[in-house]
Computed example of a mutant assay.
Amino acid sequence: MRLSIDAFLDYGFPEPADVLLQIEAAALPDQWLEAQSLVIESDHPIRAVMGEEGIGQRTWATAEHRLVAHYRAVVDIRRATPPLAALPHTPAGLLPPQTIPYLLPSRYCESHRFDHFLRRSFGGLRGGDLAVALSEWVRSNIDYDGVGSDGRSSALDTFAERRGVCRDFAHLLVALARAGEIPARCVAAYAPGVEPPDFHAVVELWLGGAWHLVDPTGMAHADEIARVCVGRDATDIAFMTIFGSAWLQQQRVSVTRLLD
């Protein structure tokens, strides 16, 4: 699967502020960057730094009055997608060290609050079988609706409200998976078919000795998702973190499939 990506950001600033951008698709073994460019209109130097887990990169910029960023890329995705249900469970004590942070509660993923719900609703399921059941539960029980959701909504809020946007779906699945002893992390991504078109948030689950992509909204398939970065929750994967205040002037994201 080859994707064409076009993302444009235009924000205004009442006073100078540092801005951390994460909008570039990551170069990884299962997704190749055929071409890409990031143009940032700024009178100040910009600086690239590595993303979490060494996946992707962040870009520091200083915004004064206005910040405009335009990212374009062509990404070739060649990713095996084995059935999740066939993947075995790994006991917590045998997990690789790098997966441990993704087994613990985090700011927006209060996995410790879902223990009773997991035991009552999914008792007896482990590994891939549990992952499939949790993904289907989130997809079936949460409505895609931005009303009532904001940057402060957590997995517990989404569980109570039964609605949210992609980051809320991702937070809830991550929290449920962690409660079921499956390491889970949030992933910022680009994907075709997302409605409304925007930066997208999905999930990676550690099963059978590897990370596997899952879109709990059901809008994107694992073999057509271009990862940008990964993290414990939305704190780590935000496409833009502003150390100050700003207002949105224009933002658009377009992701289209290319014919080979």
Rank of each mutant, 00 (worst) to 15 (best):
P101A: 05
R113V: 04
C166G: 00
Q98D: 15
D223V: 08
P45C: 05
S154Q: 03
E204S: 10
E41K: 12
D76S: 12
D198W: 10
P91L: 06
L38V: 10
I237Q: 09
F243S: 12
P97Y: 13
R126F: 12
V187P: 09
R163P: 09
A17C: 10
V75I: 14
R2W: 12
D236A: 12
L205K: 03
A63E: 02
D236R: 09
Y108C: 04
L173Q: 06
H89R: 09
F122G: 00
V49T: 15
R232A: 09
E52Q: 14
V255M: 05
I55P: 05
A133F: 01
A69F: 03
A201I: 01
F8R: 15
I5M: 08
V147T: 15
T90Y: 06
D76T: 13
Q249H: 13
H116A: 15
V75R: 01
A26G: 07
S106H: 06
M219L: 10
P82Y: 03
G146W: 05
R227V: 14
G148E: 09
P83H: 03
R178C: 00
V203G: 05
Y102P: 03
Y144T: 10
R66H: 11
D233C: 07
A210V: 10
L28N: 03
A179M: 05
F117C: 03
M50P: 14
V203C: 08
R252V: 13
G244P: 07
A85R: 09
R2F: 12
L134F: 02
P97V: 14
A35W: 11
R227Q: 14
G12T: 00
Y108G: 04
S149P: 06
D115S: 14
G123Q: 02
D43M: 14
G180M: 05
A27D: 13
D150P: 05
F8G: 05
G148S: 02
V147C: 10
A238C: 09
L20W: 13
T62E: 07
S37N: 11
I40F: 02
A80Q: 12
L28V: 08
A86E: 14
H221V: 12
R120C: 10
L104P: 03
L172G: 07
L156K: 07
G54V: 00
T217R: 01
T99N: 09
D30H: 13
